[in-house]
Design a protein around this nucleic acid. Structure first.
Lengths: 345, 345
DNA sequence: TTGAAAGCGATACCAC
DNA sequence: GTGGTATCGCTTTCAA
């Protein structure tokens, strides 16, 4: 049924020639709602089939929107990023969009380069999952009629659309849980990556503590990740006074911290130490950890992003996420597991 | 510096008009190696800057190759997939390619739909990370001059280029390790997803065992993942005779299996039970597991894929991976940790 | 219903 | 060095 290898993409022209019709006829055959006779359509389809023709969407959308959405992301092996990527690609596809992924460092320059690329590829929209582009670049994108969506950037850029999670609520709840467990020396473990989300969690947690006249010791680990959490535990528990309740700004840090505390100091969780994380990555539910944490509603957030990109108007009421200063903020879901005591030891 | 919002992508024509030159001049300014006077270039750059112009690569590549590479993948949150995706996107970008990600189910029909999409988008190449497209579709792609690369499909399709890992070698080594540890009742845990790779690991492992006159009990878990491993342990150790050494076809299964064995039956690893995995995902190195496993050289494999797509000729000798029947096979790297005893208990 | 022709944004080839 | 023109693959008038 199929012809010899042309080593070149089959074009509508080739199909037209073979079917003995005009190229317009071919175009119409593949445009729904266009008027073609049954006879012509049959001839065209037959030729197309034989040649292995596929409409060139890139050329088609030379006149209209490209339907391309760019995802700018760094550290995509991280469970949260991978999860967001999965959700976004799936939903975008379902909405008929094409997803272009740009893997970048999270510094402003790299993100900027990536954003320029999206302009070169005429993406209808860009979704930034990590890092923050300079506001002047965002404006260039906007000026080119491109939508820009920023995820989990609490320092939301003017002009861009922001989608995020309510860090403050989780931080407050975390403090409450640690207090209820009877923890007396409360700590917070953050990472050296001072992203807006992590900073917000830290700020809200310490603020909530001061409000109760509680002192919180802040520990800073290395880059966000398991290893950093582990090493942090090493340092934290080598001190004369060490915490008995710690809120870690991400699950990955928390899991490493738990392992470090148990392995290096023989601490029992939650008897000797209570730990709370943030994100609810899959591993937090693993038997070895059973980490109490807060779930980022990735799927709902992704859904909202897709709505922003597909719905014609500024999202109608009722909103899917709470709106605040132009940002859609989603409530994280507390997930109670076994890394925190239910009451004082 | 920047003009009012045109709400439409800026084109070379607009730049030309503003700079008072021809559109050819604009084109030349952005084509390196073209001859433009300093004066003209300056005027063009100034106008481009003011308007926020970016060359439209989609239109440019109407005449030449698109530079687009499509990645077809399912279950991208899985550590191995996420890792491969990370490596591929990074290297492809470095090679000047644009990456489109198609998130799909792994059944033939979904993969087929995805492959057709890549044709619509004139991708120069398609890399299939999961699932196998029908061979007729692969031929259509090939006939359109598109390269097709299949990763870890041991049933390698004719025409497509295959890149994989040597499952047989790992399986044999796994058996050796379990025997050296003095295990007497050896088992193999596989998943219900009977992908070519997993089947190969199973086949080679049992074959190696028969060669030593050893019997291997094969257990089948649910879908590849932690939960399935955990549940499998539940069933496996509820039996009157249970294994004391198990090769799990993926790390995720292994980790769940370990937790199940420890949590539900109080087994000590490696004293009571030796476990070996495959993939060397990050979590395998976590303190709670310290799983002995085999590392898939994702980075080297990705590098090879990119070579296939960028090097003009069929890859020259010396090859980066062992060549076998047109497939590039990479050796997995044994990673010795603590889930297997070094000698009999 | 059909084919011819214009146009989308960019590049290559021409004369000038 | 420069501007005009054809061309890439496609959709969309517009006449027939």
């Amino acid at each position: 049924m199929r012809e010899v290898n042309p080593k070149v993409f089959v074009s509508a022209k080739m199909v037209a020639e073979r079917a003995g019709v005009s190229r317009s006829a071919v175009s119409r055959t593949f445009t729904d709602g266009a008027s073609v006779s049954e006879e012509t359509r049959r001839k065209v389809m037959e030729a197309a089939e034989a040649l292995g023709y596929h409409v060139n969407h890139l050329a088609r959308q030379l006149r209209e929107r490209s339907n391309i959405v760019c995802l700018i992301v760094s550290d995509m092996t991280t469970p949260v990023r991978a999860g967001m990527l999965e959700s976004l690609t799936r939903k975008l596809q379902a909405a008929g969009k094409i997803t272009m992924v740009i893997n970048t460092e999270s510094n402003e320059e790299s993100v900027g380069r990536a954003l320029k690329l999206t302009l070169h590829y005429r993406a209808d929209a860009t979704v930034v999952l990590s890092g923050t582009p300079s506001s002047s670049l965002v404006h260039t994108a906007l000026a080119n009629g491109q939508q820009v969506v920023l995820i989990n950037r609490d320092d939301g850029l003017h002009g861009a659309q922001n989608v995020g999670v309510d860090n403050g609520m989780a931080a407050k709840e975390a403090l409450f849980l640690l207090r209820r467990a009877g923890c007396r020396r409360i700590g917070l473990l953050t990472s050296q990556a001072r992203t807006p989300s992590l900073l917000a969690r830290e700020r809200c947690f310490t603020a909530a503590a001061s409000a109760c006249n509680l002192e919180v010791t802040v520990f800073e680990a290395g880059p966000t990740g398991y290893r950093s959490g582990y090493e942090a535990a090493r340092r934290v528990f080598a001190r004369s006074v060490s915490p008995d309740g710690v809120f870690c700004v991400t699950d990955l840090l928390a899991l490493g911290f738990m392992d470090g505390a148990r392995q290096e100091f023989g601490l029992k969780i939650p008897e000797d130490l209570c730990v709370i994380g943030f994100d609810n990555i899959e591993q937090a539910g693993w038997e070895a950890y059973q980490l109490t944490t807060f779930e980022q509603p990735l799927d709902r957030m992704a859904g909202h992003v897709v709505d922003l990109l597909t719905l014609p108007e500024p999202l109608p009421e009722p909103l899917r996420g709470r709106q605040s200063g132009g940002a859609a903020i989603f409530e994280p879901l507390p997930v109670w597991r076994r890394s925190v005591r239910a009451k004082p030891a």
